[in-house]
Protein backbone atom coordinates (compact mmCIF):
# COMPACT_ATOMS: atom_id res chain seq x y z
CA UNK A 1 0.00 0.00 0.00
CA UNK A 2 1.21 3.44 -0.81
CA UNK A 3 2.74 4.97 2.31
CA UNK A 4 0.93 8.27 2.09
CA UNK A 5 -2.37 6.53 1.44
CA UNK A 6 -1.87 4.30 4.45
CA UNK A 7 -1.14 7.29 6.63
CA UNK A 8 -4.19 9.12 5.39
CA UNK A 9 -6.42 6.16 6.25
CA UNK A 10 -4.87 5.75 9.66
CA UNK A 11 -5.22 9.39 10.47
CA UNK A 12 -8.86 9.58 9.44
CA UNK A 13 -9.67 6.48 11.50
CA UNK A 14 -7.62 7.33 14.52
CA UNK A 15 -8.21 11.04 14.77
CA UNK A 16 -11.87 10.45 15.45
CA UNK A 17 -11.40 8.07 18.36
CA UNK A 18 -12.56 9.38 21.69
CA UNK A 19 -9.84 11.09 23.65
CA UNK A 20 -9.02 9.48 26.99
CA UNK A 21 -10.27 10.66 30.33
CA UNK A 22 -8.44 13.14 32.50
CA UNK A 23 -5.44 12.65 34.65
CA UNK A 24 -4.62 12.82 38.28
CA UNK A 25 -3.21 15.48 40.54
CA UNK A 26 -0.74 14.69 43.29
CA UNK A 27 -0.51 17.11 46.18
CA UNK A 28 3.05 18.08 47.02
CA UNK A 29 2.39 21.14 49.20
CA UNK A 30 5.13 23.10 47.50
CA UNK A 31 3.81 26.51 48.53
CA UNK A 32 1.54 25.79 51.51
CA UNK A 33 -1.14 23.35 52.69
CA UNK A 34 -4.12 24.73 50.75
CA UNK A 35 -6.03 22.54 48.33
CA UNK A 36 -6.96 25.37 45.95
CA UNK A 37 -3.47 26.56 45.05
CA UNK A 38 -2.26 25.42 41.63
CA UNK A 39 1.36 25.04 42.62
CA UNK A 40 0.58 22.68 45.47
CA UNK A 41 -0.31 20.03 42.91
CA UNK A 42 1.58 18.13 40.29
CA UNK A 43 0.97 18.84 37.51
CA UNK A 44 0.54 22.46 38.54
CA UNK A 45 -3.22 22.93 38.48
CA UNK A 46 -5.77 22.45 41.23
CA UNK A 47 -7.89 19.33 40.64
CA UNK A 48 -11.00 19.62 38.52
CA UNK A 49 -14.00 17.35 38.45
CA UNK A 50 -12.32 14.87 36.14
CA UNK A 51 -9.11 14.55 38.15
CA UNK A 52 -8.22 12.04 40.82
CA UNK A 53 -6.76 14.04 43.73
CA UNK A 54 -3.96 12.14 45.42
CA UNK A 55 -2.64 13.21 48.82
CA UNK A 56 0.55 11.28 49.55
CA UNK A 57 1.94 10.48 52.98
CA UNK A 58 2.88 13.36 55.25
CA UNK A 59 0.45 16.16 54.37
CA UNK A 60 -2.35 17.95 56.17
CA UNK A 61 -4.31 19.48 53.33
CA UNK A 62 -6.99 22.09 53.97
CA UNK A 63 -10.10 23.00 52.09
CA UNK A 64 -11.17 26.18 53.83
CA UNK A 65 -13.90 28.58 52.82
CA UNK A 66 -13.87 27.43 49.24
CA UNK A 67 -15.31 24.84 46.91
CA UNK A 68 -13.09 22.04 45.76
CA UNK A 69 -13.82 19.25 43.38
CA UNK A 70 -12.30 16.10 42.05
CA UNK A 71 -13.32 12.87 40.42
CA UNK A 72 -12.23 10.99 43.54
CA UNK A 73 -9.65 11.30 46.30
CA UNK A 74 -6.86 9.13 47.61
CA UNK A 75 -5.57 10.00 51.06
CA UNK A 76 -2.43 8.13 52.02
CA UNK A 77 -1.61 6.84 55.45
CA UNK A 78 -0.32 9.58 57.79
CA UNK A 79 -2.03 12.28 55.77
CA UNK A 80 -5.17 14.24 56.51
CA UNK A 81 -7.62 16.13 54.40
CA UNK A 82 -9.58 18.73 56.38
CA UNK A 83 -12.72 20.34 55.06
CA UNK A 84 -13.15 23.43 57.21
CA UNK A 85 -16.33 25.37 57.89
CA UNK A 86 -17.44 27.11 54.72
CA UNK A 87 -15.66 24.53 52.61
CA UNK A 88 -17.21 22.07 50.17
CA UNK A 89 -15.58 19.10 48.51
CA UNK A 90 -17.61 17.69 45.65
CA UNK A 91 -16.63 14.34 44.18
CA UNK A 92 -17.83 13.87 40.61
CA UNK A 93 -16.74 10.32 39.90
CA UNK A 94 -19.54 7.93 38.95
CA UNK A 95 -19.24 4.44 40.37
CA UNK A 96 -15.67 5.02 41.48
CA UNK A 97 -13.92 4.49 44.78
CA UNK A 98 -12.11 7.05 46.91
CA UNK A 99 -9.40 5.63 49.12
CA UNK A 100 -9.07 6.78 52.72
CA UNK A 101 -5.68 5.76 54.09
CA UNK A 102 -5.42 8.69 56.50
CA UNK A 103 -8.22 10.78 57.95
CA UNK A 104 -10.82 12.85 56.18
CA UNK A 105 -11.83 15.51 58.69
CA UNK A 106 -14.48 18.13 59.05
CA UNK A 107 -12.61 20.74 61.03
CA UNK A 108 -12.77 24.30 62.40
CA UNK A 109 -12.79 27.64 60.65
CA UNK A 110 -15.80 29.88 60.21
CA UNK A 111 -18.93 29.82 58.09
CA UNK A 112 -21.41 27.13 57.17
CA UNK A 113 -21.02 23.49 58.05
CA UNK A 114 -18.42 21.85 55.84
CA UNK A 115 -19.84 19.55 53.18
CA UNK A 116 -18.68 16.41 51.43
CA UNK A 117 -20.87 16.15 48.36
CA UNK A 118 -21.24 13.22 45.99
CA UNK A 119 -22.59 13.91 42.53
CA UNK A 120 -22.99 10.24 41.65
CA UNK A 121 -22.84 6.81 43.27
CA UNK A 122 -19.53 6.55 45.06
CA UNK A 123 -17.61 4.24 47.38
CA UNK A 124 -15.36 5.25 50.26
CA UNK A 125 -12.86 2.58 51.17
CA UNK A 126 -9.74 2.05 53.19
CA UNK A 127 -6.58 1.35 51.24
CA UNK A 128 -5.50 -2.19 50.39
CA UNK A 129 -3.25 -4.11 52.77
CA UNK A 130 -3.61 -1.50 55.47
CA UNK A 131 -2.45 -2.84 58.82
CA UNK A 132 -3.70 -0.04 61.06
CA UNK A 133 -7.16 -1.11 62.21
CA UNK A 134 -9.35 1.88 61.36
CA UNK A 135 -9.39 4.90 59.08
CA UNK A 136 -11.80 7.64 59.75
CA UNK A 137 -14.10 10.18 58.27
CA UNK A 138 -14.44 12.29 61.37
CA UNK A 139 -16.50 15.34 62.26
CA UNK A 140 -14.58 17.51 64.70
CA UNK A 141 -17.27 20.03 63.81
CA UNK A 142 -20.56 19.02 62.22
CA UNK A 143 -19.82 17.78 58.74
CA UNK A 144 -22.53 17.22 56.17
CA UNK A 145 -22.32 14.21 53.86
CA UNK A 146 -24.65 14.91 51.00
CA UNK A 147 -25.49 13.48 47.60
CA UNK A 148 -27.42 14.41 44.52
CA UNK A 149 -30.92 12.98 44.36
CA UNK A 150 -30.96 9.18 44.31
CA UNK A 151 -27.23 8.79 44.63
CA UNK A 152 -25.72 6.24 46.99
CA UNK A 153 -22.57 6.26 49.09
CA UNK A 154 -21.14 2.86 49.97
CA UNK A 155 -18.63 2.27 52.75
CA UNK A 156 -16.13 -0.51 52.14
CA UNK A 157 -12.69 -1.67 53.13
CA UNK A 158 -9.70 -3.35 51.61
CA UNK A 159 -7.15 -5.28 53.59
CA UNK A 160 -7.36 -5.35 57.37
CA UNK A 161 -8.49 -1.83 58.07
CA UNK A 162 -12.13 -0.90 58.50
CA UNK A 163 -13.54 2.49 57.63
CA UNK A 164 -15.32 4.44 60.32
CA UNK A 165 -17.60 7.46 60.09
CA UNK A 166 -17.41 9.12 63.46
CA UNK A 167 -17.60 12.38 65.40
CA UNK A 168 -20.38 14.81 64.53
CA UNK A 169 -21.89 14.15 61.14
CA UNK A 170 -25.16 14.82 59.37
CA UNK A 171 -25.48 12.00 56.86
CA UNK A 172 -28.05 12.97 54.27
CA UNK A 173 -27.00 10.79 51.35
CA UNK A 174 -28.42 7.30 50.89
CA UNK A 175 -25.81 5.20 52.64
CA UNK A 176 -24.82 1.56 52.38
CA UNK A 177 -22.89 1.02 55.57
CA UNK A 178 -20.77 -2.07 55.24
CA UNK A 179 -18.28 -0.69 57.72
CA UNK A 180 -18.75 1.34 60.94
CA UNK A 181 -20.89 4.38 61.66
CA UNK A 182 -20.06 5.41 65.20
CA UNK A 183 -21.44 8.36 67.10
CA UNK A 184 -18.32 8.72 69.21
CA UNK A 185 -17.60 12.00 71.04
CA UNK A 186 -20.20 13.65 68.87
CA UNK A 187 -23.58 13.13 67.27
CA UNK A 188 -24.21 11.32 64.04
CA UNK A 189 -27.61 12.02 62.53
CA UNK A 190 -29.00 9.72 59.87
CA UNK A 191 -31.40 11.85 57.85
CA UNK A 192 -32.97 12.63 54.46
CA UNK A 193 -32.37 9.38 52.58
CA UNK A 194 -32.70 5.74 53.68
CA UNK A 195 -29.68 3.82 54.93
CA UNK A 196 -28.80 0.16 54.74
CA UNK A 197 -25.87 -2.21 54.88
CA UNK A 198 -24.24 -5.01 56.79
CA UNK A 199 -21.92 -2.91 58.91
CA UNK A 200 -22.04 -1.65 62.47
CA UNK A 201 -24.29 1.15 63.72
CA UNK A 202 -22.77 2.27 66.96
CA UNK A 203 -22.73 4.91 69.68
CA UNK A 204 -20.07 5.07 72.35
CA UNK A 205 -19.45 8.28 74.31
CA UNK A 206 -21.73 9.97 71.83
CA UNK A 207 -25.03 9.74 69.98
CA UNK A 208 -26.43 8.09 66.92
CA UNK A 209 -29.76 9.61 65.95
CA UNK A 210 -31.92 7.70 63.51
CA UNK A 211 -34.28 9.99 61.61
CA UNK A 212 -34.78 7.89 58.45
CA UNK A 213 -35.53 4.29 57.63
CA UNK A 214 -32.64 1.91 58.05
CA UNK A 215 -32.61 -1.61 56.66
CA UNK A 216 -30.17 -4.46 56.37
CA UNK A 217 -28.41 -7.04 58.51
CA UNK A 218 -26.11 -4.59 60.22
CA UNK A 219 -25.36 -4.81 63.92
CA UNK A 220 -26.52 -2.16 66.36
CA UNK A 221 -24.39 -1.45 69.39
CA UNK A 222 -24.64 1.15 72.12
CA UNK A 223 -21.81 1.27 74.62
CA UNK A 224 -20.72 3.21 77.69
CA UNK A 225 -21.74 6.86 77.52
CA UNK A 226 -23.50 6.32 74.24
CA UNK A 227 -27.09 6.78 73.10
CA UNK A 228 -28.86 5.46 70.05
CA UNK A 229 -31.99 7.50 69.54
CA UNK A 230 -34.61 5.98 67.27
CA UNK A 231 -37.04 8.55 65.91
CA UNK A 232 -38.59 6.54 63.06
CA UNK A 233 -39.90 3.00 63.08
CA UNK A 234 -37.12 0.51 62.44
CA UNK A 235 -39.00 -2.55 61.33
CA UNK A 236 -36.82 -3.82 58.52
CA UNK A 237 -33.57 -4.28 60.32
CA UNK A 238 -32.30 -7.81 60.66
CA UNK A 239 -29.21 -7.69 62.79
CA UNK A 240 -28.67 -8.06 66.53
CA UNK A 241 -28.88 -5.19 68.99
CA UNK A 242 -26.24 -4.99 71.73
CA UNK A 243 -26.93 -2.74 74.68
CA UNK A 244 -23.70 -2.78 76.60
CA UNK A 245 -22.86 -1.58 80.08
CA UNK A 246 -23.62 2.14 80.34
CA UNK A 247 -25.30 2.39 76.97
CA UNK A 248 -28.81 3.71 76.29
CA UNK A 249 -31.32 2.82 73.63
CA UNK A 250 -33.87 5.63 73.44
CA UNK A 251 -36.96 4.61 71.54
CA UNK A 252 -39.23 7.33 70.22
CA UNK A 253 -40.48 4.89 67.58
CA UNK A 254 -40.82 1.15 67.27
CA UNK A 255 -37.93 -1.21 66.71
CA UNK A 256 -38.31 -4.76 65.58
CA UNK A 257 -35.59 -7.19 64.57
CA UNK A 258 -35.38 -10.93 63.94
CA UNK A 259 -31.91 -10.65 65.40
CA UNK A 260 -30.97 -11.11 69.06
CA UNK A 261 -31.13 -8.59 71.87
CA UNK A 262 -27.94 -8.62 73.90
CA UNK A 263 -28.59 -6.64 77.05
CA UNK A 264 -25.77 -5.91 79.49
CA UNK A 265 -26.72 -3.46 82.22
CA UNK A 266 -27.66 -0.76 79.81
CA UNK A 267 -30.87 1.25 79.61
CA UNK A 268 -33.80 0.92 77.30
CA UNK A 269 -35.80 4.09 77.55
CA UNK A 270 -39.16 4.33 75.91
CA UNK A 271 -40.42 7.65 74.68
CA UNK A 272 -43.87 9.10 75.24
CA UNK A 273 -45.24 7.64 72.01
CA UNK A 274 -45.16 4.17 73.57
CA UNK A 275 -43.32 2.44 70.78
CA UNK A 276 -42.85 -1.30 70.66
CA UNK A 277 -39.56 -3.07 71.11
CA UNK A 278 -39.80 -6.54 69.63
CA UNK A 279 -37.30 -9.24 68.84
CA UNK A 280 -38.38 -12.23 66.82
CA UNK A 281 -35.26 -14.28 67.16
CA UNK A 282 -35.09 -16.66 64.24
CA UNK A 283 -38.31 -15.31 62.82
CA UNK A 284 -39.45 -12.22 61.03
CA UNK A 285 -41.01 -9.02 62.20
CA UNK A 286 -44.74 -8.72 61.52
CA UNK A 287 -45.63 -6.31 58.78
Amino acid sequence: MNTKYLLIVMTIVCSCLVAPALGDRTFDGQVNDQWDVDENWNPNTAPGEGDVAIIPTGFNVKIDVTTAKAKSIQIAEDSDLSIERGGILTLHGNGVTSLIGGDLKFAGGSGNDPILHFKYDHTLSTVPNELIPARQVIGDVQGVIRGDSGKVLTLAHQGNSRLQLTGTLLIEIALVNNEVVNGNYGTISLSENAKSGSGLWKATQGELTVNVEVTGVGTWEVGAGGTIEVNVDLEDIAGPVHILNGGELLLNASLCSPGALDFEEGVIQVGSASPALTFYVGGTCPT
Binding site: D36, A46, E49, T66, T67, A68, K69, I88, T90, H117
Partner: peptide, 11 residues
Protein backbone atom coordinates in the same frame (compact mmCIF):
# COMPACT_ATOMS: atom_id res chain seq x y z
CA UNK B 1 -3.51 33.94 34.33
CA UNK B 2 -6.37 31.88 35.73
CA UNK B 3 -9.13 33.70 37.60
CA UNK B 4 -10.72 31.07 39.81
CA UNK B 5 -14.09 31.69 41.39
CA UNK B 6 -14.13 29.15 44.19
CA UNK B 7 -17.29 30.57 45.76
CA UNK B 8 -19.92 28.70 43.72
CA UNK B 9 -20.16 24.94 43.73
CA UNK B 10 -18.76 23.82 41.40
CA UNK B 11 -16.12 26.47 41.04
Amino acid sequence: WTDYDFCPDPW
